[in-house]
Design a protein around this nucleic acid. Structure first.
Length: 551
RNA sequence: GUCUCCGUAGCUCAAUUGGAUAGAGCAACUGCCUUCUAAGCAGUAGGUUAUGUGUUCAAAUCACAUCGGAGACGCCA
């Protein structure tokens, strides 16, 4: 939280300076972590931005600002330096760093979390796969990104709810029921052709087999219900084994089937509402949403001329329901193939009286599946897909979740099954978890020793490797706020790899269990702090921090 | 045809959202285990950020154009 400390103090100092210069407008300066070749703790770009407006030399502004910072913030700032085109590099006092380590040790898994729930309520909806088949590897990516983002936001003090939207009515449910029935009849010896537009996967036959065992009369079986129940249980198991749990399972039938006293569903009501407000109109016997009014490139059908609603109508009612539950911000994770929905969903949000930013849609590129260099199909209908369960069983939950978090959502992810199945050091999760194993090993060994002190003097930690490691620990909060700002949790894995790198270098350079009891105690404190951060970070990524690892 | 995303080292990807000398892992090569786990460390090599023009103190990042890849554009679900 050093960054927060520095930036909070800087804010008033800089504002005062700007005022003294007669600058009223807000300048969006940023406090950054400098590139590796510069050893300063933070870099400030405010002088260059101010110079642009004041039309003066940025270096002069930088010097003035720098002098004020040193004077006003002497309790935390050791020194400053002006570099490049007018960067102000800030060096934080060692005592601030050491205090931060104490803070980590005291707060443990609560470190860098904001406990007061004064931030807005957020609903994050993800996966939401139709219950027509098991989750595949693409759903895994959505699950990993959504769940980790939720964990980060929760840690930062937002009241986050994770929701799965269940499309449990509509035509495909009927097809699912029919598919199961035909498989059942085939198992009973009837000669029936299986239609090519029905669900082909073996899991349908498995469900039918279970029904055959129950030995009921065919007329007593609700095939649709049995199939959905079976598949949904499978989905829940798969998510559970993947470390993902949802707070709310929202059923589409609640808004599209359930009727109020007047015999209206929520979908009926919102369509009516939109029409009354002029956001929808009738043309060619269908009801159209005027989404072009809010930036969509064409209007969309809400209700077909035969009276059936489209998915958009359900989605509009669903999002209205989300807002009504008191969520100030909605985050939806969608596969990139659904990007066409963004404009119309945002239109709905605005028609409901919310800002278009109240709904954030994170699109993640689909996972292209490769098997031994050749592309592999992923269609639920052909039945030739790799399930999430299959990959988790073979690769392990930790590696799988870490792998999905390595890339930004909008970059395409190539998942080579053969490579992922190889449990080798090609997978960076081992590099990070190895830190945990090495720390634990030392901590175990240290318990056998008796010359260690509790009130270790952290100022003894003054080698380059120790200082680098401490600084990396202290930037944990910066990483979290970056995830928040970019709404992407992929910075977690990048951070963990950097932290692991700093730790392994420290491990090589600085022996912990040594005769010098004072130094040894200080280093033990340091690795206790490392353990806390590694564990926190891995936990946000949905992975574990093992106590031991063997060859 | 229109729209969205992408194009960065041999491969897979980062780059704190406009910042300083563009960084990691894998693959390749050279060293390091009688001391807390070598799933590690140190080092070498690898780049006109697809191409071009522009915007400014500053561009991989923004704008326009071109080339290439993926995807979306139905009164489908």
């Amino acid at each position: 939280m050093i960054k927060k400390l520095v930036s909070d103090k800087l804010q008033t100092v800089i504002l005062d300076y700007f005022k003294s210069k007669g600058l009223d407008e807000e300048i969006k300066y940023s406090l950054e972590i400098p590139p590796k070749n510069i050893d300063a703790d933070f870099a400030l770009n405010a002088a260059m931005l101010a110079a642009k407006i004041l039309k003066t030399n940025p270096k002069i502004i930088a010097q003035e600002m720098s002098d004020i910072i040193v004077k006003e913030m002497s309790d935390i700032v050791e020194k400053t330096a002006i570099a490049g085109a007018g960067f102000i590099n800030i060096y934080v006092k060692n005592s601030v760093l050491f205090k931060e380590i104490q803070e980590i040790l005291a707060q443990k898994d609560k470190y860098a979390s904001i406990s007061k729930n004064n931030k807005e309520k957020i609903l994050i909806e993800f996966v939401s796969a139709n219950p027509t088949g098991p989750l595949h590897i693409g759903h895994g990516r959505g699950a990993a990104i959504g769940d980790s983002l939720a964990r980060v936001l929760k840690h930062l003090g937002y009241a986050v709810s994770k929701e799965y939207y269940l499309n449990d009515c509509g035509n495909q449910m009927l097809v699912l029921g029919k598919s199961t029935k035909i498989r059942y009849q085939q198992l009973k010896g009837e000669k029936i052709d299986f239609p090519s537009d029905h669900y082909q996967g073996d899991y349908i036959t498995d469900i039918a087999k279970n029904l055959v065992v129950q030995n009921k009369n065919i007329d007593e079986i609700n095939f649709k219900e049995e199939a959905v129940k079976d598949i949904l249980n499978g989905i829940k198991d798969d998510l559970n084994n993947f470390g993902v749990d949802f707070d709310i399972w929202f059923s589409e039938s609640d808004i599209a089937v359930k009727k109020d006293g007047a015999g209206k569903t929520e979908v009926d009501k919102i369509c009516c509402d939109f029409e009354n407000k002029g956001f929808a109109y009738v043309q060619d016997g269908a009801l159209w949403l005027k989404s072009t009014q809010f930036g969509d490139d064409k209007d969309r059908v809400l209700k077909r001329s035969d009276g059936r609603y489209t998915y958009l109508a359900s989605d509009a009612a669903y999002h209205k329901n989300k807002f009504e539950r008191g969520f100030a911000k909605l985050i939806n994770l969608l596969g990139a193939d659904h990007h066409g929905y963004v404009a119309r969903l945002k239109s709905c949000a605005q028609m409901l009286g919310h800002s278009k930013d109240a709904l954030e849609v994170i699109l993640y590129q689909l996972v292209s599946l490769v098997r031994g260099g050749k592309p592999a199909a992923m269609s639920t209908r052909t039945g030739e897909f790799i399930t999430l369960k299959e990959v988790v069983d073979e690769v392990g939950k930790d590696a799988c979740r870490f792998f999905f978090l390595l890339r930004a959502p909008d970059s395409q992810l190539e998942f080579d099954i053969e490579l992922a199945k190889k449990q080798s050091n090609e997978n960076p999760v081992f590099y990070v978890q190895y830190v945990s194993a090495r720390c634990n090993s030392i901590l175990r060994e240290s318990r056998k020793r008796k010359n260690l002190k509790n009130d270790a003097d952290l100022s003894l930690l003054n080698t380059k490797e120790e200082r680098d490691l401490i600084k990396k620990l202290c930037s944990f909060y910066s990483m979290l706020s970056l995830c928040e700002k970019s709404l992407s949790p992929h910075h977690i894995t990048a951070y963990l790899m950097e932290l692991a790198d700093a730790y392994h270098r420290f491990y090589e350079a600085c022996r912990v269990l040594i005769d010098d009891a004072a130094l040894s105690s200080a280093r033990l404190k340091l690795i206790s702090a490392v353990m806390i951060i590694i564990k926190n970070g891995l936990s946000l990524a949905g992975a574990s921090a093992p106590e031991q690892m063997y060859k």
